[in-house]
Amino acid sequence: MRAPIGNFDTATPAPDCLDALIAPVADAVRHWQGGVPAERILYVDTEPEWADTAVFVEHYGSDLVERSANCVVVAGKRGGGTTLAACLVLSTTRADVNGLVRRQLGARKASFASMDTATGETGMEYGGITPVGLPSGWPLFVDPAVIDLPYVLVGSGRRRGKLLVPGKAFAELPGAVVLEGLGLGLA
């Protein structure tokens, strides 16, 4: 199958390649619910050494700059407790962690989670964290600009491979909250 975005050799419906996905992502695809059929979530194989954005778009297509989203894990702290959440914003923006996210979490302080926390809690590889298959009960804050795209490139849970997901599917993920103003322009 031809990928709807980017220059990938092949795109495979995620339900047809569960063995290429890590356990939490494969489970999420296996038990997919929502208006967007799981078969519309596509897996594309990519080289891990080309994972950095500039090199990635050079190899897989300049159209991906505007059609990629980053999923970051955030830790909100209040008193002695910490709440973990994920944010999904276009790769051309950054998440408003210290403002909007902090307020949504009811936290006194919010910051990006450490690499060990992000990978340990999600079971995913750093640089490949995806909103598909996040831990149960986590809020997923999604910028509406992501939902507006026909297809969005996101991580697959590993540094090798990516998912191409219809934007509107992100609003249907467990714990998803669409937040206007989540993605801030890069300075």
Rank of each mutant, 00 (worst) to 15 (best):
T117G: 13
G183I: 06
P131T: 09
Y43D: 13
F170P: 01
T46S: 14
V132S: 04
A14D: 05
D19S: 05
Q33F: 14
T122P: 05
L186F: 00
A118V: 06
E66K: 10
R159Q: 11
L140A: 13
L140G: 09
R67Q: 13
G120T: 08
L186Y: 00
W32R: 12
L42T: 09
A169P: 02
R30Q: 15
A75G: 04
D63S: 11
L184K: 06
V57Y: 00
Y151M: 10
I22H: 06
L18N: 02
G99I: 14
L18K: 04
L184F: 03
G167F: 04
S114R: 07
G34L: 15
V146D: 03
P166N: 10
G185K: 05
D116P: 08
R78P: 02
L90G: 08
G181V: 05
A176C: 09
L88H: 02
P37S: 15
A54C: 02
A69S: 11
L149I: 04
G157L: 05
P135L: 11
S68R: 08
C87M: 01
C71W: 01
M1W: 12
T117V: 15
L42P: 10
K77V: 07
Y126K: 00
T46E: 12
N7C: 13
V74C: 03
Y43F: 15
W32F: 08
L42N: 11
G155R: 11
D143G: 03
R160C: 02
E125Q: 08
H31I: 05
A26P: 07
R160F: 02
Q33L: 15
V72C: 01
G106E: 09
L88Q: 04
T53S: 06
N7G: 11
D63K: 02
V152E: 13
M1C: 13
A176Q: 07
D27F: 06
I22L: 11
V142I: 07
N98I: 05
A145H: 14
E49T: 08
L42Q: 08
E125H: 03
Y60D: 03
A107Y: 00
P139Q: 12
L21Y: 09
A107T: 01
A85W: 02
L186V: 00
Y151L: 09
T83Q: 04
R103T: 15
D63Y: 05
E121A: 14
V152G: 13
Y60L: 06
A26K: 10
S91P: 00
R103F: 14
L182A: 05
W50K: 07
H31V: 11
G76F: 06
F56C: 03
V72F: 01
V65H: 03
L164G: 10
A11N: 05
V165E: 09
